[in-house]
């Protein structure tokens, strides 16, 4: 599925060819902090299927609980997170995978997560959104 998107201020734009079956939710505490929300939602694509159309990304490297170093790529102007990938070159010269944040994909309404990871650190209320009052006007 062909998608496009970018950051809020418009500096970063991209196109990608994604598999809608590879959309997942991550409840890890790093994703909570960095999204500001209770979980992150991403779609995994191989590097070759992601094309940066405009802009210059900034990289922040975090060390995951596994010890893996993950490069977090974001727009330096508006702070919008775009994707994460492994830091450095993959062993054996293979392809890298990019975890694109679904919030930056224009077609996100057509995507739904297929699995959830790091559920042990999920916020306790995330399964109960239907019980939280909706206020239509702020």
């Amino acid at each position: 599925m062909k998608v496009d998107g970018g950051c809020h201020c418009g500096q970063i734009t991209f196109e990608a060819e994604i598999d809608p079956e590879r959309v997942s939710i991550c409840h890890c505490t790093d994703c909570q902090t960095m999204s500001g929300a209770p979980f992150n939602a991403v779609v995994q694509v191989s590097q070759a299927d992601f094309t940066l159309k405009s802009g210059t990304l900034k990289m922040y490297v975090k060390t995951a609980e596994s010890g893996n170093k993950r490069a977090q790529m974001f727009c330096p102007d508006c702070g919008n997170r775009i994707y994460a990938t492994s830091a450095g070159d993959p062993p054996g010269g293979g392809q890298k995978f990019f975890g694109i944040r679904i919030g930056v994909i224009n077609q996100r309404r057509e995507l739904s997560p297929k699995r959830q990871i790091w559920h042990r650190s999920a916020q306790p209320w995330v399964n109960g959104l239907g019980d939280i009052p909706v206020v239509e006007k702020q």
Binding site: C7, H8, A37, R101, G103
Partner: peptide
């Protein structure tokens, strides 16, 4: 805007 800027479904 919250969807885009958080990268996820909503912001809290």
């Amino acid at each position: 805007d919250c969807q885009t800027m958080s990268g996820t479904a909503f912001r809290v």
